[in-house]
Design a protein around this nucleic acid. Sequence first.
DNA 1: CCAATAGGATACGGTGCCGTATTGATACGC
DNA 2: GCGTATCAATACGGCACCGTATCCTATTGG
Lengths: 185, 185
Amino acid sequence: MVTESTRLSAQDWAKAALKAIAGGGLAAVAVEPLARTLGVTKGSFYAHYRNRDELITAALTEWARTHGDAGLAHFAAIADPAERLRELLTAVVRSVQPLAPSVHLSLLGDRNDPRVKDVVRQVNRARLDLLTRTYRELGLPPKRAESRARVAYAAILGLSHLAQTDPDAPRAAVLADEAAAIFLP
Amino acid sequence: MVTESTRLSAQDWAKAALKAIAGGGLAAVAVEPLARTLGVTKGSFYAHYRNRDELITAALTEWARTHGDAGLAHFAAIADPAERLRELLTAVVRSVQPLAPSVHLSLLGDRNDPRVKDVVRQVNRARLDLLTRTYRELGLPPKRAESRARVAYAAILGLSHLAQTDPDAPRAAVLADEAAAIFLP
DNA sequence: CCAATAGGATACGGTGCCGTATTGATACGC
DNA sequence: GCGTATCAATACGGCACCGTATCCTATTGG
C-alpha cells in the first residue's frame, strides 16, 4: 500500500473508485462502501467531491489519461514500426494473463452511460490510431491499414475478455506466436 | 410486441430481465422498475419467481441456452468447414453493425458474479469448440487450430465491442474482407 | 355458471445508499 | 504555539428497492 499516511486525498478516493469499477462496474462506486474499505466514514468524502457523480467523472478522466495517449507514449516513441508492433503485441499478450481486474472490461457493462462511452471511445481511438499508423508505416495502403488495425485491436480486446472468464491457461507463448503470425506481416 | 395478451408469464419477465441486462447489466434487473416497464406493479412478480435472484438465474440460463450450442446448431450443421467458417464470419460481421444492445457485453461488467462467469464461460466454450473443430477440419494441427480459433473468436468479440462505442460506420464490407483475409486460410 | 387458480393491486416494514448539517480532530503556515 | 484550513465522525432526512401480506379480479375447466 502506498497510502500509509494518515489522511486521504481526492486521488485516493479516485483510485479506490477505479478499483471498485474494475470489480463491479459503475454500480460499485458507492460512497459508503468505498468509505468502509478505506477505513473512514463517508462524512469525509464530501470534503473532496461534491457528490458521487463527481467522483465517477474524476475516476474516468484519470483512467482515460493513463490509458490513452499517455499510456501509449512509450510505444509511440519506438521508431521502427515492425519493432513497435511486436512490442505492442507482446505487451498485450503478457498483460492478458493475470486475472487482474480490468477497468476497460467492466466499463463495457456501463457503456450506455454517456461519460463512459466518451472515455472508452477516447482510449480506443488513441490505440487504434497508433496501430493504424504503424501498419501504414509498414507499407499497407491507408484503407487496409485501418481495417487491419481494427481487427488486430479487436483481437487484443477479445483476448483480454477471454482471459477473464476462461480458467484455462491461455498459454501466453502459444498465443503470442499465433498473434504474431497473424498480425505481424 | 408479441406480448399483446392481457396477462404476463414467467417468460415475459425473463425476457424483460434480459433486455434490462443488455441495457445496464445485472444492476438493471430490479423488480420494481421492470414491473413499471411491463405496465404492472411488482406484486404480481412474486407469483412467478420467489425473488430477484431467481429471475436473474432464469434469465441467464435462458441466454446461455439460446446463445450456446442451441444458437450454433445452424452453423454446426454445415458440412464443409470452409463454408462453415465463412458463414460464421459473415454472420458475425453482419451482426456487429446494429447498435443492438448486447447481453454478452453487458455481462462483462458483472463477470465477478459467479453465475455470470459460469454462463459466459459456457457460451464462449461452445463457440470456441466449434471454431477449433472447424480449423482442425481445415487441416490445422490441433494446437494451432485451438490458438487460431481463440484469436479469431477474440477478434469477433472485440469487433462487437468496438461497434458499441465507435460511431464510425465500421464498413461491414471492408471488415468482412479483412477478417476473411486474416482468418480464412 | 361457478369454483379454483393464476395474475394483479395496495400497503407495509426493512435495508442500503445519497446528500446535508454539525461538530470534532489534526496538520501546517506563520 | 496558534489559528485556519482540511480531513473525519456522527447524526439526520430522504429515496429507491426488496420482500411479505392481504385482498382483488379475471380466466378457465368442469
